[in-house]
Design a protein around this nucleic acid. Structure first.
Lengths: 338, 338
DNA sequence: CTGAAAGCGCTTACAG
DNA sequence: CTGAAAGCGCTTACAG
């Protein structure tokens, strides 16, 4: 392995001068700089990351904590991974990906051993045991998702309540007065996925305000239960004119289900949904939807974390940032004449 | 941050003694050990990973290089991520996840700066530009997937040719003499996904040996093209009695497609496939299949890499290991009386 | 504009 | 059974 000393010797300068050429923190004469840069190229020198980390107390690595829930539609998680990683690289950071079943212990481990400069927590739940761990370790962190206790931490998430209102309003504007809501499976609620009830409660409240009838259900996450459940919801409420689908497995299966029933959208049934843009493209979903942008959330989370790490004044006070939902109209809502 | 010096002072010993308690490389008197362990607990000491890496020239981190192909069914990639990460942790390693678009440059970066002890390459293509980069960097590597040039490197993959033979044989044994094969989309071939033609060529050759007619096609990866293509294949060969599906998007959509056509499996059509166990479970696929075990491949890859890193004699000569496919019979093949 | 030296927090031969 | 010291490869105040 070639070190900064090898480069210095070859260029006939001191190690510190080489270091300053690398960092640009000092003005170096053009001539000296040229010699050093040549030596670096000839020797193929790259600074040792561990040594640099030790000297600067900065690793330029971010920890990313994933949790895999067997019951979850797998791509959901993946949507954040790439944006987080890409955003980190653009800011000069690498990603240490941690999938330990015990996330709280993992945070202590990578935090206390100074393997990372900051930590991104994905898929945060209402009572997330990783939070206490994050607070105990003296490393900045950022959450994607909303826990119960957000004191003194940066968290970012889609505004699911607002998303629900946007969709209910859209249906109401088009004259719909009786609709069915399909939420994620109930066990997602049980393990603390707050986005489920944030969306659901807001939808119920808004429908109530507007004098609409709304039938709320928890859906399923796998075939064939997904199919069965949708058929049941449709059978039970033949007079509902629209479906609000907040359930990836359901919305992906919906085109086939409706075809089976001979239903055409929006002629026979209106459909609005909430899903991520990537997901909609993957399954070519033709529905009016609030699109959650995992890439926006991921990028913003990393941006905030890096500001926090560098103690940038732009980081502001730690707190929750809810991203405004955006409705994309794909014509899947029929205007009802009354 | 508390250091080994703090612990030493508190326990009234030298830093080296603390270090030896940590590593267990020296016999320490019970009494001294107790004092030190108490001090470690009281101070909440965890060794600084960077300092340790510098002193030992070992980071205990493995690089994992992912490539995201926009055209690929996303979960395919994810299946390896978790097993690789889990296997690494069991062996004491963390995972640096690298998703840079330019994988070759990323390998040079993390290799030359000694951020990792070894590198796992996922989704290796026939002419993978990352290979040269891996060879140039003096770090052990392991490939998941099979490139054209496998000199002096460890690679592991499913034996796709054998998988094809197993499936063709199974159909032949049941009396099938005319079958249709649906491979992944052609652009996967174009970007060097050798598993496509390893499976396809072997299927064609075996069918030929056995005197079967086999109609080979490249399928699609997204709806609605997936649906359209399958309908076409079925229309064109009404006398084919079985389908061999080597295409995730197709097999996931197949139950709905066959229902649309009023075809029942295996009464009207026999179906065999190749997919990963996870994938089959996710979509509750009811087909006889060769199951690729991403977790086995991932774990074996990491195991081999770590043996290579530690220069274990058990690592053997660098080379290719093909994992034997396993057929799981789910009764989707009809026995044809002749 | 440049260099010599201290220091980051560990590990491990060398001594006793 | 334990300690003092060198060394890993950087960065950066301190000097000139």
């Amino acid at each position: 392995m070639t070190t900064i000393g090898d480069v210095a010797r070859r260029a006939g300068v001191s190690r510190s001068t080489v270091s300053y050429v690398l960092s640009g923190k000092r003005t170096i004469s053009q001539e000296t700089r040229d010699r050093i840069e040549l030596a670096i190229r000839e020797l193929g020198f790259t600074p040792n990351a561990g040594a640099r980390a030790l000297a600067t107390a900065q690793t330029m690595v971010l920890g990313m904590l994933l949790q895999f829930h067997a019951d979850e539609f797998a791509p959901a998680m993946l949507q954040y991974v790439l944006p987080v990683s890409a955003a980190a690289r653009e800011l000069g950071y690498d990603i240490l990906m941690v999938t330990d079943p015990d996330g709280a212990a993992a945070i202590r481990r990578i935090g206390a051993s100074a393997m990372v400069d900051g930590i991104v927590l994905l898929d945060v739940t209402h009572q997330d045991p990783r939070l206490e761990s994050l607070r105990s370790v003296s490393k900045p962190g950022v959450l994607i998702g909303l826990p119960a206790d957000t004191r003194d931490i940066d968290a970012i998430d889609l505004d699911f309540a607002q998303a629900a209102r946007v969709l209910v309003d859209d249906l109401h504007d088009h004259g719909h007065r009786e609709v069915t809501l399909i939420s994620p499976p109930y066990h997602v609620v049980e393990r603390g996925g707050s986005y489920v009830w944030r969306f659901r409660d807001a939808a119920i409240a808004r429908a109530d305000e507007l004098g609409m009838r709304l039938h709320p259900y928890y859906g399923e996450s796998r075939p064939p239960a997904v199919q069965t459940s949708v058929h049941r919801f449709l059978d039970v409420h033949p007079s509902a004119t629209a479906l609000i689908v907040h359930n990836d497995a359901t919305i992906a299966a919906l085109p086939a289900i409706l075809r089976d029933r001979g239903l055409s959208v929006p002629r026979d049934l209106s459909v609005v949904s909430l899903y991520s843009r990537d997901f909609g493209e993957e399954f070519s979903l033709p529905y009016t939807a609030v699109e959650s942008a995992a890439d926006t959330l991921g990028r913003q989370a990393v941006g905030q974390l890096v500001r926090r790490i560098s103690r940038s004044p732009q980081a502001g006070q730690p707190g929750v940032r809810l991203v405004e939902p955006v409705l994309t109209d794909r014509g899947s809502v029929r205007s009802l004449s009354r």
